[in-house]
Simulated scan of single mutants.
Amino acid sequence: MDHYFDLKLLPDPEFAATQLMSALMSKLHRGLHDLRRDDVGVSFPEIESARHHLGSHLRLHGNREALAHLLTLNWLTGMRDHVQVGEVTAVPAQVRYRLVSRVQVDSNPERLRRRLIKRHGITEEEARERIPDSAGKRTKLPFVSLRSNGSGNAFPLFIRHGDILEVAQPGTFNSYGLSSTATIPWF
């Protein structure tokens, strides 16, 4: 991960930054999926100041070849009017590192009940007793709203920026640019 480029959302009177970031992440997901690479990671440099949302700045990390190849794909189609795309640039010499990962939250008690009924053959009443409405987990993590390509269902993709580390951790990234083990340069 020796290079990066920035994508900055431009202000738009018709769309909130959260909507645009969700659309951008959806397009990025398709681009990374088409590339079939596991060495491109993402971060959101404005995360501390944005608090409960990801901000309007997305940074992609990887080697020069992977990032240049990603930029040649048409994954930004429909977003070009909403995004300022930076140049592929070398990562600064003095950086620290951070894990940017997906957090899955079972926040829908109704879905958990349906799953329990299907797997264990119990009645809806028994499932409601086991999983009350108050059982849904809550999180204050920022997220993007995405739609599953397979089922078409909408879902929140919760994103956690871990602690800042002095040493990079190796690993791979998924097609959202997130990892449970690999760190990205943080600067």
Rank of each mutant, 00 (worst) to 15 (best):
H161W: 09
G152V: 06
G136V: 11
H161Q: 06
R80Q: 14
T18W: 11
G55C: 03
S43N: 06
D106L: 11
L112P: 02
A50C: 10
R160K: 12
H82W: 05
L35G: 04
I184E: 00
R113M: 09
L76I: 07
D163G: 14
S148E: 08
D12G: 04
E110F: 12
D81F: 02
M25N: 06
H82R: 08
R119N: 05
T72Q: 14
K8P: 03
H57C: 01
L146T: 09
A17V: 07
T77W: 00
R96E: 14
K118T: 05
H53D: 11
H52T: 11
H3K: 04
A93I: 05
E65S: 13
R128Q: 06
A68T: 15
P45E: 04
G86V: 09
T139G: 11
D2I: 00
L112K: 12
F5T: 14
H69D: 14
G162L: 08
A23R: 11
E126V: 02
P170V: 15
H161I: 04
N74Q: 12
S107C: 09
I164K: 14
L35Y: 00
L73T: 15
A127Q: 03
R98N: 01
A93D: 11
V40H: 10
K8W: 09
L35Q: 04
S101I: 01
G177C: 08
F187Y: 12
F15L: 15
R30L: 12
K137W: 10
A90M: 13
R96M: 03
A182D: 02
L99Y: 13
V40I: 15
R96H: 06
E124I: 01
Q169V: 10
G31N: 07
S179Q: 04
D39T: 13
F44G: 08
L141N: 12
F158P: 01
M25I: 08
N149P: 07
I122L: 07
S22H: 05
L112V: 13
Q104D: 10
E87K: 15
G78R: 00
E65F: 09
R98A: 07
T72V: 10
R51S: 05
H69F: 11
R102E: 03
A182Y: 08
I47M: 07
S175M: 11
E14R: 15
L20T: 06
A93L: 09
I159R: 04
Y176R: 03
T181Y: 04
P142W: 13
H120L: 10
L178N: 07
Q84M: 10
N174T: 08
S175I: 06
D2F: 00
L60H: 06
V88D: 09
T72G: 07
I184F: 01
T123I: 01
G136W: 02
E46R: 12
A90S: 15
R36K: 13
L112D: 06
T123H: 05
R102M: 04
R102S: 04
P13M: 01
